[in-house]
Design a binder for these strands. Structure first.
Length: 547
RNA sequence: GUCCCCAUCGUCUAGCCUGGCCUAGGACAUCACCCUUUCACGGUGAAGACACGGGUUCAAAUCCCGUUGGGGAUACCA
């Protein structure tokens, strides 16, 4: 490899599931490295596992990469949904699905057979008879590792079904596609001697390797999509202990299947039965199917209202993370620009990224820090952009848009977005926090402690304030109600020589059910006059109940 | 078991290659205070780390060896 050879990197996911954050980071680094050096970035699908590979997974992966802002120079067209026989693929080194490159592999199998370096197994599989020479693995991140002959082994390179194994396909493809730099997870570091042995036997060039650190869970376990299934099981068990029934859950999941399908494009089974749920709850985690791991937990979380740990890019997307926050956070997980700069854009990354600043040790995925990055980004969004994103992510499919007259540009939704922009860690967090806005007046759940402290205490002083204010509010105009009400509250507090807290809090509790809401003028603007009065009336009824 | 890799605040990390400028810097989280009609936002500040043991050196977070701990690989998965 000469100094002026153009850089070619690749991301080579296997389409056996959704795009994982670890994969996303690998893609990001490969992409950034190619961009930084004016080279090419290839996307290749490693679908040599015929049983587990699906076109749905491929679609999901392409969509998630595109969402992150990662584009590729060669590979399948992201907007197509069928890539059979080389269709809808771009680039001179295709096809970009390994299942479509069988003829190429056969050529290389023949070379090895001719060289006497293979052994045929009974069922037709082919084993590479490793010459077992001492091999030095050079790496841009890790120190050179030398593997002696004793540590090397023969391994299968062609499966009984005629497909190549990963080790063989990766070597042939990287070479035939002209890949110069292989940036991949450290789980592949120990595989590299196998790849080098194959390159040597085949007379192929060695790419430059860079093995990047693993991403771990808080408890040091490898971050796994099974974590979602485990959480779902625990939550469902809890729900059943509290009197929930499996039949009911199944019924609800089936009823909302269409919505789930939008969220989980890899979803396979058409509907969920009670017995499938029982099966899911009791089977060994090693037996989880793709559906168990990616779809069922999501549907359960939706129905029962619990929170799942985000593992896949798709999860972050639907839970209201911005792609730029995820990229920013992921970029920093294992790499840093060398100064104290932490918040930067993907554009900066492609100017700055370098392998010599990639760390060696595994990193734990810190959701809190990601959330802080996301909150920062959300706060920095132009208000109209935030409003539009909020509407898309949270309201579509959640059935609450009608609370805002289905109008993303109406004054009440504008007020809602404004109130929550600096209060939201994620877009969906906004909906959680602002849930009370979407309820009917008689569905508000009043927090006992709040009612007691703010309204009932001191012989119902708060109720008295509320009653007085109710009369004043009734005279105010619909237009600019929140502002006018706020002025009225101030006037009332001066007139009765009460602190603002003594006056505003009763209103807050009356309309929200708790002591927490955005500033009172904004809160009332979002609600509007009629709804505010309705809620105050409803709240006033509590007076007799508590006295 | 065997082979390979890793080791700085709770977490992500800067510093290590080219020993002294390190009384170890930043970010997230935590705590306190300020702002304030609640919750946030914002501001100020505090607490918090060189895994351990040996070397080498005038001097070690930085170099060497060992111990311990962690991770990965050891599939007709990738």
């Amino acid at each position: 490899m000469t100094a002026n050879t153009p850089v070619v990197t690749r991301f080579a996911p296997s389409p056996t599931g959704a795009l994982h954050v670890g994969g996303a980071r690998t893609a990001l680094y490969n992409w950034a490295y190619a961009r930084r050096h004016g080279g090419r970035f290839i996307l290749r699908l490693e679908d040599t596992d015929q049983k587990r590979s699906t076109a749905e997974s491929t679609r999901g992966i392409l969509r998630d990469l595109a969402w992150l802002g990662i584009d590729w120079d060669e590979g399948p067209d992201a907007n197509a949904d069928n890539w059979d026989d080389g269709a809808n693929q771009r680039g001179a080194n295709g096809p970009y699905f390994q299942s479509q490159r069988l003829k190429i592999y056969d050529e290389y199998f023949d070379k090895l057979i001719a060289a006497g370096l293979t052994k045929k197994e009974d069922n037709g599989a082919l084993r590479f008879m490793n010459p077992k020479r001492s091999i030095a693995v050079r790496d841009e991140v890790l120190p050179t590792a030398t593997i002696g002959p004793l540590a090397q082994e023969d391994f299968i390179i062609r499966k009984a079904d005629g497909f190549p194994t990963y080790h063989f396909a990766v070597v042939v493809d990287d070479a035939t596609m002209g890949v110069t730099h292989v940036i991949r997870g450290q789980e592949h570091h120990s595989n590299t001697p196998k790849h080098i042995a194959l390159q040597d036997a085949l007379g192929l060039p060695r790419p430059i390797y860079a093995h990047i650190p693993l991403i771990l869970n808080q408890d040091n376990s490898k971050m796994s999509k099974r974590d979602k299934a485990k959480t779902a099981r625990d939550e469902v068990q809890k729900w059943i202990c509290n009197g929930g029934s499996i039949d009911e859950l199944a019924e609800r999941m089936v009823a909302n299947e269409e919505k789930a399908r939008q969220l989980y494009p890899t979803m396979q089974s058409p509907s969920v039965t009670a017995s499938e749920i029982v099966d899911f709850l009791t089977k060994k985690s090693a037996d989880f199917t793709q559906n168990d791991v990616e779809v069922i937990p999501g549907m359960m979380a939706r129905e029962l209202g619990f929170h799942l740990p985000e593992i896949e890019v798709n999860d972050f997307r639907w839970n209201g993370y911005l792609p730029e926050s995820l990229c920013n956070y992921l970029a920093l997980l294992g790499w840093n620009p060398g100064n104290n700069l932490e918040r930067f854009d993907t554009d900066d990354l492609k100017e700055e990224f370098s392998l010599d600043r990639v760390g060696k040790s595994a990193a734990k995925f810190d959701r809190e820090k990601l959330a802080a990055f996301n909150a920062d980004r959300i706060a920095g969004l132009r208000p109209e952009v935030f409003r539009q994103k909020l509407w898309e992510v949270c309201f579509r499919g959640r059935g609450i848009a009608n609370q805002f007259q289905n109008d993303p540009n109406g004054p009440r939704f504008v007020a809602f977005a404004e109130a929550y922009q600096s209060r939201s860690k994620t877009l969906s967090d906004t909906v959680e926090q602002g849930r009370f806005f979407f309820l009917d007046a008689d569905a508000i759940a009043y927090d006992d402690k709040a009612v007691d402290k703010v309204l009932a205490k001191n012989d119902g002083q708060g109720f008295g304030v509320l009653e007085g204010l109710r009369a004043v509010f009734a005279e105010l105009p619909d237009d600019g109600f929140g502002h006018a009400a706020h002025e009225a509250i101030k006037a009332y507090s001066e007139q009765h020589e009460l602190g603002m807290g003594k006056v505003a809090q009763p209103v807050r509790v009356a309309v929200s059910g708790s002591t927490v809401s955005p500033p009172i003028d904004q809160t009332l603007d979002i609600l509007g006059k009629a709804e505010t009065l309705a809620r105050i009336d409803r709240c006033l009824q509590l007076r007799t109940a508590t006295s």
